[in-house]
Design a protein around this nucleic acid. Sequence first.
DNA 1: CATGAGCGT
Length: 381
Amino acid sequence: MAAQVAVANGGGAGPAAAAVAVVPAPAPAAPGGVTQPLPTTSLYVGDLEANVTDSQLYELFSQAGQVVSVRVCRDVTSRRSLGYAYVNYSSPMDAARAMEALNFAPLNNKPIRVMYSNRDPSSRRSGSANIFIKNLDKTIDNKTLHDTFSAFGAILSCKVAMDDIGQSKGFGFVQYEKEESAQSAMKSLNGMLINDKPVYVGPFLRKQERDNSFDKAKFNNVFVKNLSESTTKDDLVKVFSEYGTITSAVVMIGMDGKSRCFGFVNFESPDDAARAVEELNGKKINDKEWYVGRAQKKSEREMDLKRRFEQSMKDAADKYQGQNLYLKNLDDGITDDQLRELFSNFGKITSCKIMRDQNGVSKGSGFVSFSTREEASQAAH
DNA sequence: CATGAGCGT
């Protein structure tokens, strides 16, 4: 069932529902004019949980028709599942039925994703007709997303991002067969209410592409830092006026009345702002190498800081992965130094701590970190 | 707030 869709302002009707397309468009002519039909009996099954087996798939897909063969693809040497499989039918009708009925069926608690097999990687490489949807109501699952978006054309692949316990993360992806379907879905659904939430529907962009387009965005306000303490607003005006008309300039002052050594310059024209950044960033002025860049809005800066903080936590976690030992049932009298002494013959200890309550009483547990995970693992045995 | 993964015997 498709989700209820409404215009964000409450008026108007949603798009007319179209039948769910289950048969792919004819393949383009191969070089030499010979048409290469897509194998309408071969299904690609992705997003497999690591332990899903051939026989599980056989059992499931037999419900839709006579299965000719099934294979979970595995790494040649390790035999580990690559997370995808092929299911072949003899009848295109059975394959179509399987697509319709079994796409997003859970196997080992994880929804599988069923597509027609297509060995030509071009549409995967280009990522064309691929769209991104966010602010999705959490009750919208894979099927609902699929049915809602299939009103605009045949879908190659569709998914709601889920967390590890299968809850929607509130965003998802739809890749259509045709670019025009993607365009029409974005045009029609962006800003619409789906289950009472206004969704964002836009082109799918990889992180790098997003960052690049962000860089090209227009801005008037320029941020400058690493100023000399004596640099004043008038000095900024003097330097930045070279690049165009300035509407304001400021050097930020601390509570002590001293310069905080950064400031903002606002240009009338974004082109001038961009030129000032281009020409002045990294330039040495009064013995100081100025940083000059696009001024971030408060929310952008906060997000950036948050991202950096999370990355540094992750780096630390990775770095100390396997190097930390957690100890419990320790005698309450043991001190940090005694703990260090006790473990010192296993390797170089980088830190060592008994956990204590507010009153300094040992909780009977603690941590010892070694400089390598080999040392930590020796000490544990 | 949020921008995957992905094609064989």
